[in-house]
Write a protein that binds this DNA or RNA. Structure first.
Lengths: 147, 147
DNA sequence: TTAATATTCCGAATGGTGTTCGGATATTTA
DNA sequence: TAAATATCCGAACACCATTCGGAATATTAA
């Protein structure tokens, strides 16, 4: 992992369809050299995969929210996560420090769908309460990169 | 946007490097037909782009946290966002309902770097206080798709 | 219902790009 | 210093995205 690899990652983050020849120009290497470096990044699981970025609004999921879920007992966490994992509206799920709680990022069609989701969440064993933070404006959502 | 398009999006989310011929097999269409559909999805900005998924830990950013930033005055929001946008540690930035506040997802190298980030945040005009939720476990982070 | 238009699809051909390979150069290890 | 390893390049190859013409289907208009 040197400066060249970091540059390659940055360029690929921005557009994974960029040609190897163009990558080569950017880092002053040939296409095969770029190829070899990227394969190594994949092998080392620094690059975990390739994906598309979709527009949630155009897919009918304009509502975004963060929900903190308070659990009565931390030992119920693993089981709760299994239930939550099945809920397609939940995009991300974390355990956070501070309270014994889970923290979710979700997307739904509308507030009705959000309410239904909350009902389902509260029906999970060990879930004591939920606190919802509805997103009004997404200022930016960039993909993590240390550069 | 029909069922076939949704299937294509799902497959591309999972692996954007999948061959058009293979996509065709999955949805019982030819490669050119798949090509045409994907180009249309891109034109309609349903597919916004192609990117790589990187491993934050292997990139030296193992610490993830959510920070809620309370502003003294909602009119200072736009200005604060401009400052926050320059902070490379901040991955996502939202305005949320409830309090007059911003909500951030961040990644840093360690707690020292987190503390430095908090100091910088508090030095922004209008920032009254911050509340940090450190992520202990990432149960899952999947990419949003209504399927 | 018929006609006209637009959309979606396929097979075949093509052009471009990822990938492989051998060998040269540089870097690291012993 | 010598051996081993890693990195690189140009050239050739193989594969896949893309283009194209035309057929089939669906949609709209008359």
């Amino acid at each position: 992992m040197d400066q060249v690899d970091r540059k390659l990652l940055s360029l690929l983050k921005n557009d994974a369809k960029i040609k190897y020849a163009e990558l080569g120009q950017e880092v002053h290497l040939s296409a095969p050299a770029v190829h070899e470096r990227i394969k190594k990044l994949e092998k080392n699981e620094i690059v975990q995969g390739y994906t598309i970025v979709t527009n949630p609004k155009k897919l009918g999921l304009p509502l975004c929210a963060f929900i903190s879920v308070t659990l009565s007992n931390i030992t119920l966490c693993k089981d709760a996560v299994l239930h939550i994992e099945k809920m397609k509206e939940v995009e991300e799920c974390f355990s956070t420090a501070g309270e014994e709680s889970l923290f979710l990022k979700i997307r739904t069609r509308d507030t009705d769908a959000l309410e239904q989701l909350l009902v389902r969440l509260r029906s999970i064993k060990g879930v004591e309460k939920t606190l919802t933070r509805i997103v009004l404006t997404t200022h930016f959502e960039r993909t993590a990169l240390g550069e």
